Each structure stands twice: as structure tokens, then as C-alpha cells.
Amino acid sequence: MRVAFAGTPEFASAALQRIVQAGFAVPLVLTQPDRPAGRGMQLQASAVKQCALAHGIPVAQPRSLRMDGKYPEEARAAQAALLAARPDVLVVAAYGLLLPQWVLDLPRLGCLNIHASLLPRWRGAAPIHRAIEAGDAATGVTIMQMDAGLDTGAMCLVQSLPIAPDDTSASLHDKLADLGADMIVQALAQVQTAPLPQTPQPAEGITYAHKIAKDEAWLDWTHGAAALERKIRAFTPFPGGAAQLGSDTLKIWQAQAQAQSHDAAPGQVLAADADGVLVACGSGHDSSVLRLTQLQRAGGKRLPAADFLRGFALPVGSVLHRPQ
């Protein structure tokens, strides 16, 4: 069976690597164009492109697949490459481009998507982050038969995975990438002999995982400590939690929620020592405390609280806040 692949980040490269290792023929890989990255802003190939080139697989990098879009010549070149590849199926994982109908119709077995959530919960761009932020007890991977909607296709395989109390988006990403890679190989092996199950998504329970915006990093101290602790884990490694103290911006990378009442203003520093920085959250009956245990100053390194406080004063009574 000939398996074309479309994907971009590390989540997708784990699946491509496993598909190749399983012995499937991969005649073509689609991935996003190289992007500037790093301090020198040099063009850098995506994780999927690097994996494809390591295995000698041809790569196409159109900026669009729409014939009526901004880059029709690139879409036509991608269409010619896909037609020449003659895929039986197209596997899609975090590709980053919407697939027009001509792509969905091209492989005889259609397009299978590896989606990192238990659909229909967390359709969209950031399902891993949003599941942690919302406090979900579990997430998982859905192998979906793609249609023209946004993550609306029929479910073929579904497997759940618990979210650990200390999971960040980085750690949960790696677990789900491994699970998705295993599941897509299972799906490809199965579809060679029999059609995959096609279970329509329920109409109830639909939520959307909107793309993470940089300004979401600012912590709102009027919220409870448990919600802020989840947000910090959800936004690690990007964009992290952030707070302002005077003219300084602090990044907060690790924290622990504590059910401790107080009558201080939200964001007020209650204590700062080697065990962490205690910050007042919420107010009244909903008050709680967040212990910040790993922090970073602009231009500095991530440091445990004890090391951070040696070089940066966080006086008791000072107030962390969001920019006005």
C-alpha cells in the first residue's frame, strides 16, 4: 500500500517515522515551507521534512493547496506530485493547511487524520494545551476519516490516555505522539484487508481548541490557583506563564496550587524563600495561593525559585500584575 503523508511538527514526524519503520511505501511527503528559526533566524526545515529527507522520501512544500487561492501554481505543482505518487491513502497529522476537496478525493482510501483529542472535544489547532488548561482528566488520539469540515469526519479508531497531575503540554505531546504513531500503523494495517469503522461524531460535547496566542501567557491573579497552575502547565513550553512586576516581565514555568485562604490583593507576594514564591490568587471565599517554583527574568535562564531570588528581589507585599 502506498501511503502519502502530510504533516509538519514533531508530533507528525513521530508518525511518519513509525509508518516507514512498519514497511509501508511512502512515495511523497507534504509539509510546510521552511521557516526562520533560532537566534539567527535561519531557514529551518520542519521536523517532518527532516525525517522524510533522512529516508530519501520526496518532499513538496506548497504554501497553499487551493487552486483558487493566493498560490495557485504551487497548488497545481502539489497536485501533479500527488497524482504521480499514486497514493492509496493520505495520512495527515498537524499539517497546518486545510485540505481542499480535490485532495480529499484523490487517494482511493481517502485521507486519515491523527488528531490529539477524544473528538468531538477539542477540535482545532491546540487540543493538547486546551485539555490541560481545562482540567480534563483524560485525553487521547482519534484516527479520523477526513471530510471538508474542521475535524468533523467520522471516527475510525479512538484511544484514551490519562492526563497526569504534573503533565505539561510538552510531556503530554510526547505521549500522544507515540500513541498516535502506534494507532496510525494499526489503522493502515487494518485498512489493507477491511474497511475501517466509520463512527459519526456525536453532536453533543463539541469544543474548539483555538490556537494559542502569545498574550494569553499573562496570568490573571483574580482566578483561582488551581486554574493558574493548569494554565502554566498547558503553556509549557509555549508561551509560558507571564507576570509583570514594575518594568520587569517574569516568566513562570512551574508552580503548585495550594488551598490556602487569605485576605490579600490578587497577585500580592505573601512570601518568597527557597521553597518558592507564594502569590495570592482569587479573593474572599475563592481565595487560594500559588507557589511559584521555577521562574525566568527577561534575557535570563529558567531557575528554581531559590536561585532566582538570589539575583532578583520579590519583596513581600509587592504585586504581580498583567500589563495595562
Rank of each mutant, 00 (worst) to 15 (best):
V279G: 02
Q260E: 15
Q17D: 09
A243T: 02
P27C: 07
I232E: 06
L118I: 12
D248W: 09
G124Q: 08
R86D: 12
L82I: 13
R297T: 07
Q268A: 14
A138G: 03
A226Y: 03
G240R: 14
R130P: 05
P202V: 07
A264F: 02
K214Q: 13
Q198T: 11
A134R: 11
A60C: 13
A25Q: 14
L119K: 09
K70P: 06
Q190N: 01
H129C: 10
A242P: 00
A217M: 12
D286M: 07
I57G: 02
P100H: 07
L16M: 09
L30C: 07
P27I: 05
T8C: 08
I132Y: 06
G311Y: 03
A189H: 14
E74Q: 15
L82C: 08
V26E: 04
Y71S: 09
G149C: 12
A227F: 01
L157D: 09
R230F: 02
V26H: 06
Q294L: 09
E73M: 04
Q186D: 10
S117R: 13
K214S: 13
A6G: 13
Q198R: 15
E10K: 14
L150K: 10
A217C: 11
S318I: 06
G300Q: 13
L292N: 03
G276N: 05
V26Y: 02
A15P: 00
D68C: 06
C51K: 10
V269K: 13
A194H: 15
T222M: 02
F238P: 00
Q198N: 06
G276S: 04
T249M: 12
D34R: 14
P33N: 05
R35P: 00
Q192A: 12
G96W: 02
